[in-house]
Design a protein around this nucleic acid. Structure first.
Lengths: 333, 333
DNA sequence: CTGTTAGCGCATTCAG
DNA sequence: CTGAATGCGCTAACAG
């Protein structure tokens, strides 16, 4: 069948022409005779010639590979985002190199480093929860463009694509408050994430608007591990006046928190309800799913981030970093 | 900060030595003066020199990228497998390029093609459900090694890593039969997958051993879409004697099938029960989870496949393709 | 121990 | 329209 080391040189020799002629014929260069082009292309096809992509990458200073660093692929939110990325990049001839940070700073830094050494053309990042030090990003900036999505780092050199979380939280709260519910707890994420602050803003704004006093004991930060969720949920339930509703950072937190409630013999959606961010398809299989959830359109998020990155790569001169905000949607179950 | 185009040449000129000296110093070559080595390494560090990976890839005829083609990253089974792959490859300096086939033949073929053009060093594949034609694999074989995992293609040139599904199905059935249950349906996968046949074997073997007649109406093939699952589940429930237990191809099928049951006012785990393959962590959140499930260790599957592929890449002469079987584990809930 | 030379596969400039 | 020559960044064989 085809030869592992079939180069243009061999085709050239076979046809008695020069390598540059073959090169031109193969890329439909204008300055080439149509008959020679035919001859070359015909033979190339017969021999199953495949250009050596490594040589081309080398010449072009491009690899057509995009690095993606995100917390967990097992979280549906991120695997959907990756799908959006893949779908945007593939038709443009780019491939996706993924690495999971698992919310760990060291892994994230190592991933960025590894991507850089592999010579990718750009990086898409959704930050790890534990990332307080951002220097690994700043260092990478000199080598390739970076675009953040969802868990973003606002900085003049980076484009970001994120959801308007303040509004999402506000809408969710307003929905609850208008139903007459007031004992609403917030199980928020870690402070390293901007979305955490935005959730808090929306939460507080809504309470203020409806003149419900903010109960500081109802506000918890969770580091996104199951243990911490269990701990914080128990704290909430141990309160003299435990919450009737919990606004959870995302569905995974809610699921673990629900388990805690069940173990304490509370009936979900009766004694206590949940409102979440994420809209995991999985939750529709629950007998007592969260009463409402905020759809964040991860697929779009990823796709848009990928588009921005392509812009940065292919038009570096005209490219301007900017922040894209995606509007969330409250889904009532 | 660091220069985008800082090459060894510049370092050499700066220090008044030759490029090869720099090259040797940087890779701790034995035949180099320790003082020159120091000088070079010091300057390289100061200047934040990073070798051009594209040039190195070009020279080595390696990209240190491994392609992974699998059905859906949103399925936890596959994202776990990918984690195992990533964890195995990363310490060896390889990165992972993923593509999702979405169970579609054309997408799978396009993915393989794209990977080949990107010059990856090897491919890991878990086949699409709709893949009946295998020529895209055979064509790729001439260029790079391929290893299959989970959804494997048995062929002398490919290594495979898969679960002993026949045994898994047999064990699951035996568990049910010993509990005195006999009306057991099998919601199997599409016939293009080897695992489908193996499930059937295990199912039939167990029935035979326990001298329970095989009811052909209890055996359904599902094409892995929700619609088909709903259709086939309804067919089962419409039977004069509907099954009391369903052995489902995997958890996702079971979840959709359970929905059908609920809509028909059947109580899960009372009127009808499910036994599944996959052991999705998600199912532990269900009020009425499958009564048993087969753990297939996707993380290990991926890791082992990655190891085999590395072997094929790094020791092509001694490498022998072979089939690895992972023993499943029946988990009773 | 170090410098010179050559070459990987391809695109491109410069001649013709 | 086509061929010869050049160089991308790096490694390695060959000299010294």
């Amino acid at each position: 069948m085809q030869d592992e080391n079939l180069t243009m040189k061999k085709i050239a020799k076979e046809l008695g022409v020069s390598v540059s002629t073959v090169s031109r014929a193969l890329q439909n260069h204008p300055r080439i005779g149509s008959q020679t082009r035919e001859r070359v292309q015909k033979l190339a096809k017969e021999l199953h010639y495949q250009p050596d992509s490594r040589a081309i990458n080398f010449k072009n200073k491009r690899s057509y590979n995009i690095g993606v660093v995100l917390p967990y692929l097992t979280e549906q939110f991120f695997s959907l985002a990756l799908s959006g990325i893949e779908e945007t990049l593939m038709p443009k001839g780019y491939s996706v190199v993924v690495m999971q940070s698992k919310n760990d700073y060291d892994r994230e830094a190592a991933a960025i480093d590894s991507l850089l050494r592999h010579g990718i053309d750009g990086i898409l990042v959704s930050m790890a929860a534990e990332t307080y030090n951002k220097s690994h990003f700043y260092n990478a900036t000199h080598r390739v463009p970076i675009v953040f999505f969802d868990r973003v780092l606002k900085h003049s050199r980076y484009s970001t694509v994120s959801v308007n979380i303040t509004k999402a939280a506000f809408d969710a709260m307003e929905y609850l408050l208008e139903k007459g519910l007031t004992n609403i707890a917030l199980m928020n994420g870690p402070n390293s994430l901007q979305a955490t602050n935005e959730r808090l803003d929306g939460y507080v704004n809504a309470l203020n608007k409806h003149e419900v006093p903010v109960n500081i004991q109802y506000i918890k930060n969770v580091n996104l591990t199951k243990e911490d969720t269990v701990l914080k949920m128990n704290e909430l339930l141990d309160l003299p006046e435990p919450p009737k509703v919990v606004l959870a950072f995302h569905d995974y937190i809610a699921l673990d928190a629900m388990q805690v409630c069940k173990e304490r013999n509370l009936q979900i959606n009766k004694d206590i309800s949940f409102v979440t961010f994420s809209n995991l398809s999985f939750c529709s299989y629950l007998d007592n799913p969260p009463i409402a959830t905020v759809e964040q359109f991860p697929y779009d998020l990823g796709g848009k981030a990928a588009s921005l990155l392509l812009e940065a790569i292919e038009s570096p001169d005209t490219y301007q970093a900017h922040d894209l905000i995606v509007e969330p949607k409250l889904i009532i179950r």
